[in-house]
Design a protein around this nucleic acid. Structure first.
Lengths: 180, 180
DNA sequence: TCTAATTTTCAGAAATTACTGAAAATTGTA
DNA sequence: TACAATTTTCAGTAATTTCTGAAAATTAGA
């Protein structure tokens, strides 16, 4: 199977962006062909479409599965594994954010939690103040994201469209409930 | 100036996380020493503390300045440039998000906008539907982030603490105003 | 303007990351 | 179980990224 001409732009672009998004060029390109192709694809098809080795495709598929961005699909009477996106575009985007939080925030949060355990006390040392601040920030972000991640796509869209307008709603709530 | 022992953990960790956060190991380490040291530091001090070349420090400082994470500071009677964080921890975090949006979202959004210009019409082609979906998602994220980014740290903290509890406030609003 | 202090640049070297392809392992069917 | 189809692994190689250090450029004071 040959790469359809209309996909080339996206494959090239996803390849270039791949490393910024947390994987590498080939993995980005693989994600592009899988997302923009209606039919599930098998490893040989992907290798041909991108002109890369079979081994590379195998590693890339493992990576995309570890990100939970693709899913195996089997065709009756065919032993090959076929791959398709693990959800809607919206779900894939949330999944990327989720994995990145795990890889980019969790390790630091663990370290800082540990530091605050052992360093309890001299909260006046400059560095320890920064540790506390970064810890609090990441902890807040973490619970916020957990919370957000559980919302339905629809609620989330509504919320995002409201944007900072939420501030006004919050003010309103305060006036009504008298709390914050 | 030698690297204080209590900073070593953070320098090593920020180095390891650096590439996941969008820069490289040395730049991550440089950010760590600058953030965790009370006094502004000059390039030679940083080079000594991290045992890296002067040229490397120069490049790293440029990178951190392009991210707007550090700022020059001058001492009277001293021609050297000293560097300190460009803001509070909270501001630095927002700045990282802001720069990453610019590097990780904007290029794709530009491409997709262009595609939708030229491809206007056959919205039934599978790939074009995906293009539209990704475009709408990124566009929504973009305006949401712009909005959020303008809020004061305090409002933002309040909003994050509320988390998905915002959903309930929104429901309340709908009941009251009869709109969404 | 001249000079010394300081910073930046960048070619080459070092380190890291990614890729290939053939061999090994696994899987499903008969 | 035996075998062919398929996938995974991984040593060696290729490509990319990062780093060094000396030379070039810039800057500020005399």
């Amino acid at each position: 199977m040959e790469l359809p001409a209309e996909l080339e732009t996206f494959v090239v672009h996803f390849g270039e962006m791949g490393s910024r998004w947390g994987f590498n060029r080939t993995v980005g390109q693989m994600l592009a062909v899988i997302v923009f192709t209606e039919e599930p694809l098998n490893a040989d098809q992907i290798a041909n479409m991108l002109s890369i080795s079979r081994g590379n495709v195998s590693m890339g598929l493992k990576e995309l599965q570890s990100w939970q961005l693709i899913r195996v699909h089997h065709k009756p009477g065919d032993r090959k594994d076929y791959f398709k996106p693990a959800g809607t575009i919206w779900e894939l985007a949330l999944q990327v954010l989720s994995e990145r939080r795990k890889r980019e925030v969790e390790p630091t949060l663990s370290l800082l939690r540990g530091q605050l355990m052992s360093d309890h006390g001299d909260t006046h040392h400059f560095a320890n103040q920064r540790v506390q601040e970064i810890h609090d920030l990441l902890e807040l972000f973490n619970t916020w994201f957990d919370d957000i991640h559980r919302m339905s796509p629809e609620s989330l869209k509504t919320l995002m469209k409201l944007g900072s307008g939420v501030g006004k709603v919050l003010d309103m709530k305060e006036r009504i409930t008298g709390k914050n």
